[in-house]
Design a protein around this nucleic acid. Structure first.
Lengths: 347, 347
DNA sequence: TTGAAAGCGCTAACAG
DNA sequence: CTGTTAGCGCTTTCAA
């Protein structure tokens, strides 16, 4: 009742100097109290803390970083723009890093080397503690030119032509094995592979997984076993038209390189009067809910566990920032989500 | 030939002090030379610049910011996680801000108020110059508690219950008018509206646009004119089943609240033996290429111009950082992309 | 035209 | 236990 009007709102910015003054202690003492360092009388500590939040004090992270030579920030640089694949990765990564108090600068270079360089310069100026590079799918990319070799760099969902770099990607080969083995397990004999464009390493890896699984099961690939096309529904429909044109032995299962292809294939089969999964079982890739759940019937699909990929990327980055030296290509497990397109008992 | 081995790689970090020493000038002079400030002899300037890039000098942005009281960073905080709608916005925003040398901290709170607060604290500690808040679609959200009222805050693709805030959202009403007017223009008489869930403000706005456009054209809405359901293909199929059950007068056009609904509707119509667009024209919303282009036929759709939204958000944020005070709700124009589902002459 | 020095906000080592 | 002080790397007066 005797104090002046105490404005509820915080002052613009209180410095630790203000806090110290308010608490009637030295600025060094205030720092210790606020950071839990040094040995201080509990009373003093409380006094300082009280002053701090009376003033709405919030330490200036830039000043702290300047001193500690750790910015507690990392950059994530997308060569291609961000999209469906990058999002879950980034999201999980952000979550993991946030737990450690690390913030993320997001940069997008959209396939433009000039913008990439500009972003990198900016990030280096901000003294990021680490860098994460992503790209559209898993195509090889030239390594980022980080001066000094000192800063941790991780390529996630992308690979660089740099033997010293750490690359994190899904295990496409293993994912294909998972999907095809499932078709073998449910008793299918004539399994075809409707694939994406051959220029993707993922596509050739998946094809290898497909072939190895068949041969291990003692099955022969159907005539033109792998058809390469686009990542689209249209391609899925076209491929089915080719496979079921009546000339060759018809497949009883399709392994598709993504869910769009699988969905197109499923639609085409239905329109041909064939039942999925009774006549033909279908397995997709990506487990993209928008496609996999909307398809009729819903698609069994290989999940690349992108959130897990992001989480692991976060862990690796933290380890590298702490001084560990990691390199090479790390391939993370895929998993299979079974739905009606291969198993009528699923709902 | 007489110099020691000159290591090509940059040293870890050269400070301006090193540059000054190397150039044989004072540290203040070096600063002036590097920033183009003050009056300096061209010779000195050159000497400093040469020294700087010989040493691979890169100014420490944190140190600069500490002095200039501008961090040249902003935060973008997603209440809900990032997704299909937020991405184009963020991408365009990032592009715009990058042109001004402003970097973006990306934070995701996934509907968790505790994480939201934690992120906000972190961002305030980093002394961001502005904050951008996004959410899933355009649902109202409680305002962010930024102490001091000093920092610019923009809600994009979301609205806050805060009359002092600036909110940027697509003009849903106008978008609906655009879509429905197009159907009127091509001569349709019985236009139905297959809508999303009523809890979204966007849905009620679009319904109003639909009704107003019909009435302006002297048309009556069909019997149960607006059907509310989910944002899914399944709902589109179900709605068509209801509308074409033979009891009531059948529509000759459908205005759908998103492309998934429109696609489901189109599929159902085809399976009913009806031709799109000859028997029934279909217009969707979102212009989401994955849906709109894969549908058979490809969908005419209302585009919310999300990239433009991001760009404008960037401009507004820059203006606000420069001191302008902006508030209120700004609704940005949608546009219409015409494809075969309403116009057979499109390819 | 250049140099010296104060200070942005904070921490940590060292005295007291 | 607490205060003093020297920086972290940079910019910007103010003198010279």
């Amino acid at each position: 009742m005797n104090d002046e009007q105490t404005p509820e709102r915080y002052p613009e910015r209180a410095t630790i100097r203000d806090v110290a003054a308010q608490a009637g202690v030295s600025i060094g003492t205030a720092s210790k109290a606020l950071n839990g360092n040094g040995r201080l009388k509990q009373e003093t500590r409380d006094k300082v803390v009280a002053a701090a939040d009376a003033l709405g004090f919030r330490p200036n992270a830039m000043a702290q970083s300047l001193h500690r030579a750790k910015s507690m920030t990392v950059g994530i640089l997308s060569t291609d723009s961000f999209g469906r694949f990058t999002f879950p990765i980034v999201e999980a990564l952000e979550e993991r890093l946030a737990e450690h108090g690390i913030a993320i600068f997001m940069c997008n270079a959209t396939d433009d080397p000039a913008r990439e360089k500009q972003h990198l310069d900016q990030l280096l100026g901000k003294r990021i503690d680490g860098l994460l590079v992503t790209a559209r799918r898993m195509d090889m990319r030239p390594p980022i030119a980080v001066p000094g070799k000192s800063m941790p760099v991780i390529y996630v969902f992308s690979q660089a032509e740099d033997p010293d770099a750490l690359c994190l990607i899904p295990d496409d080969y293993g994912g294909a094995v998972l999907g095809v083995q499932h078709l073998v397990d449910i008793g299918r004999q004539r399994i075809a592979h409707i694939a994406g464009p051959t220029r993707f390493e993922a596509v050739t890896l998946r094809q290898q997984g497909y072939l190895d699984t068949l041969s291990k099961a003692g099955l022969k690939p159907v005539a033109s076993h792998t058809l390469n096309g686009q990542w689209s529904e249209l391609w899925g429909r076209d491929a089915v038209a080719t496979l079921f044109d009546g000339k060759a032995e018809k497949p009883d299962a399709l392994f598709c390189d993504n869910d769009q292809i699988a969905r197109g294939a499923t639609d085409a089969l239905r329109e041909l009067g064939l039942s999925v999964p009774n006549d033909v079982a279908v397995v997709g890739f990506d487990n993209w809910d928008v496609m996999a759940l909307a398809a009729r019937p819903p698609l069994t699909s290989v999940d690349m566990n992108l959130r897990e990929l992001g989480r692991v990327a976060g862990d690796r980055l933290i380890a590298m920032i702490a001084g560990e030296r990691l390199k090479g290509v790390e391939r993370l497990n895929c998993s299979l989500v079974v739905r009606q397109s291969s198993d009528p008992s699923q709902n």
